[in-house]
């Protein structure tokens, strides 16, 4: 009847989350240092992502060892760039003067990308789905 087990498992989960985030930070810091040292044109974080993907694929790092931490970092991505957006106050006059132009450009630009990409991908997906379907039938027929 005591609420203790629930509290205990909750704090255990929090500790797990912190450790996993720390591990991902360490990985990011490590690849960043290497990228800077080698003068790599590819940013450290992208190298870190590739490294983690390799580690996961070869089961060096099991999925559940990063699951909690990675899910939190991805789900709360927005929180990490709020401060960069606040920095826009430095450019206040620019936004006051060109506000309408900016809004127009963003709306028109997004419409073009969304419409174009959606139209192309919708057709290609129908084609690839048929292709997969036919391939599956071929495999079944030759069995």
């Amino acid at each position: 009847m005591s609420p203790l087990p629930a509290v205990k498992s909750r704090s255990f989960k929090l500790l797990q989350l912190l450790l996993q985030v720390a591990f991902l930070c360490l990985l990011a810091w490590f690849t960043h240092t290497i990228a800077v040292y080698l003068g790599s044109p590819i940013p450290g974080a992208v190298l870190g992502m590739t490294l983690l993907l390799i580690l996961l694929s070869f089961k060096v790092v099991p999925e559940k060892a990063v699951n909690l931490g990675a899910s939190w970092l991805i789900a709360d991505l927005l929180l990490f760039f709020i401060p960069s957006v606040v920095a826009v106050l430095k450019y206040e006059p620019l936004f006051e003067k060109y506000g309408l132009n900016i809004i127009a450009v963003v709306i028109l630009g997004s419409s073009m990308v969304l419409l174009g990409t959606g139209f192309v991908v919708d057709r290609i997906f129908r084609f690839e789905r048929r292709l997969n379907h036919r391939r599956r039938q071929l495999i079944l027929a030759t069995r």
Binding site: G48, S71, S84
Partner: peptide, 26 residues
């Protein structure tokens, strides 16, 4: 003053990028 501590949040963008390996793998 606003950035003195909030920049710690911005620093988490790099590990978040590394974390993108998980959905690709999964």
């Amino acid at each position: 003053i606003y950035f003195q501590y909030t920049h710690l949040l911005v620093m988490l963008l790099a590990p978040a990028t590394v974390a993108f390996a998980l959905p690709i793998y999964r």
